[in-house]
Design a protein around this nucleic acid. Structure first.
Lengths: 163, 163
DNA sequence: CTGTAGGGTTAGGGTTCG
DNA sequence: TCGAACCCTAACCCTACA
């Protein structure tokens, strides 16, 4: 078997997107011949480009990225199992928001058995929730704001681990 | 639920082996269509054949790659219980798989030398970078996915605060 | 012959159930 | 808990047709 299944790299995906932006979809051979992309996509055929674009389009149209995120969260929750969660409050809240907005079928997100939580943690929760709500209000499509909130989370993390 | 879990009979396994011998592995649909096997395997799909062949192969060539991968995952989940090292294992595993394709300009995010926390935060960065990378892949303009990834971060936070 | 569209199939990671 | 059976879907293949 010659091709053990070659997954697309971010570089290749970027090149494909750029190519479609430049020539439009359906011009696969043209994109491949463009020196700007031919290096990165040298191991891909025009048909490969077409197929990949089809996959990416599915993801872009709503359902894809959400599903991916859902699976990630699901794995995380599963790993947690029956740990007494010190962030019970916040997981409850998040569950509410998610259900309302995303309509997730997997009810497993809940499991908010409240263990012994601590004051500092509760306050942390408020901060985080505020960050999330701000993100949602502001349209949430801006990478800078995403990075900012992630940095906030990192800072909070550092505080907690310092203890 | 949907699949009552139908165990493979010796007849079916024999038919599968014969089919692979006749057409080679990877020709699952072809095997199914062959009148010689279609009767015995009438309740199996081409995907079923593939999965069964994989299971048989794992046993045949003594501990194939699939089993290894599964154990690695398992170890990752168990390590979580041992505090401290838990985040390390998780993020390392993810790092191995996905870091290669992450390629995020390390720009402003790397500011976490706060306090003596060092290690755990650095490793968390990998996870965060992965999250951002995923966000970018999916177009980055989807509020739900942003919120979800932040929730993942929160989950990590909860792990660390457990201690 | 060359290239694209679109349905079909496979490979492999992941999940579930007995 | 463990592994066989099953699911999901990106990646790849096949065919019609322009």
């Amino acid at each position: 078997m010659g091709a053990p299944k070659q997954k697309w790299t971010p570089d290749e995906e970027a090149a494909l997107k750029a190519g479609v932006h430049k020539y439009g979809p359906g011009k696969w051979r043209t994109i491949l011949k463009d020196p700007e992309f031919s290096k990165v996509l040298s191991s891909r055929s025009n048909v490969d480009l077409k197929d990949k674009w089809r996959n990416m389009s599915v993801i872009a149209n709503g359902w894809g990225s959400r599903e991916k995120a859902r699976l990630a969260l699901k794995r995380m929750n599963q790993a947690r199992k029956q740990d007494e969660s010190s962030l019970a409050v916040i997981t409850e809240a998040k569950s509410d928001e998610k259900m309302a907005e995303a309509r997730l079928a997997t009810t497993s997100i809940g499991s908010p058995q409240i263990g012994g939580s601590k004051r500092s943690i509760i306050r942390l929760d408020n901060l985080i929730m505020e960050a999330i709500s701000n993100l949602k209000e502001s349209g949430g499509s801006n990478k800078a704001s995403i990075a900012t909130y992630i940095e906030v989370l990192i800072f909070l993390l550092s505080l907690m681990s310092k203890r």
